[in-house]
Design a protein around this nucleic acid. Sequence first.
DNA 1: TAGATTGTTAATCGATTAACAATC
DNA 2: TAGATTGTTAATCGATTAACAATC
Lengths: 215, 215
Amino acid sequence: MGKKSKVSMAVIRRLPKYYRYLGELLDRDIKRISSQQLSELTGFTASQIRQDLNNFGGFGQQGYGYNVEELHKQLGKILGLQKTYKTIIVGAGNLGQAIAHYRGFQREGFKMLALFDINPRLIGLKLWDIEIKDVETLEDFIKENEVDIGVICTPKEVSQEIADKLVKSGIKAIWNFAPTDLKVSKDVVVENVHLNESLFTLSYLLKEKLKKDEE
Amino acid sequence: MGKKSKVSMAVIRRLPKYYRYLGELLDRDIKRISSQQLSELTGFTASQIRQDLNNFGGFGQQGYGYNVEELHKQLGKILGLQKTYKTIIVGAGNLGQAIAHYRGFQREGFKMLALFDINPRLIGLKLWDIEIKDVETLEDFIKENEVDIGVICTPKEVSQEIADKLVKSGIKAIWNFAPTDLKVSKDVVVENVHLNESLFTLSYLLKEKLKKDEE
DNA sequence: TAGATTGTTAATCGATTAACAATC
DNA sequence: TAGATTGTTAATCGATTAACAATC
């Protein structure tokens, strides 16, 4: 008990962006960076960056700034990227395959164990070294392999049903690409990628822009 | 000139969710709904919902609530979904194909005209009725067809270069799936889908959950 | 009319920004 | 040491929630 004061979601959602820019700096062999410079890269204010980081500890040094390698490492730890997560994908259509193929996720420790689908034409196929399995075998597979993360890339009609199976089999994190809000027990975390909502937001912004142009 | 007080991004990002739930109610032939009932569906407070909607007008009626069909229609208009947008996708890998295939977007007025790729094995193929074209012909195609929206599904290494071409050819809205922050002129709107950041956020939340379980 | 529920104003809460003492 | 830049407190800003008069 006694978690220290909870970090706000607004802060958490900025962390991956810091991590990404730090990674790029690391690749460019840049050793140190100030909050001011990081501000110019990310678009957040220097003050906000310092506030955000100080939720997790004092990673900087007065008069110097932040050590790029160290800060990158610390952010990786904060984001939980130092450990490996066993991951499965349900729905082996184009979207599921796109995620399975994406090298960046594997690199950060998300190990794709298998895809699952209901389509007999897909079952048995291998994408690189990842097999597409019968969704009937989903629950047993999760239990046997102690899968950490389930990715839902199915049509929305079956997404809740799949989520229920994932939760029942012991999965604690769901990455949901179906355009629905899943109902899950409180001890399971869900992160939604609602492409519909994203596209509609773009549509709103475009409409506003065109309206303003007319004036 | 003189746009009325700008609506905050927080509000805008809730609109698509209202729109989605209203659409579901419409399918279920439900005629009216109160902010309280909408609150139970969406998880936002009734007060917030009324505040949000009143940014755009008084769509409700005291003592009655909101007419589902009317509110759905109005939200569609606010989101700019009443008109058709000519859309192209750059990058015809799994992700690009997934988006091209998604019926929901076409249904809401996003007309997919073509995909573009650099891979000779893909060029010339047809996905349903959408052709994959040579990325060399991208700029001419956009100008000739007056394309509204460009979707970037390329590797991050070429995403900025593609964005530059889109902007130069007159596109005013970009839906970006590459894990980068594109630099574009101020009169172009960009909506990012940063899958990396989404997955890392899930990773953070999972890590926190596991940590709390240990206590 | 009485009951219900909105639209809107006021109060609260939380997040961002500014400022500066601490310190490398 | 002097200059730079953090960590942190205080001030500001904006978003959410509460409350209630208006009104269907």
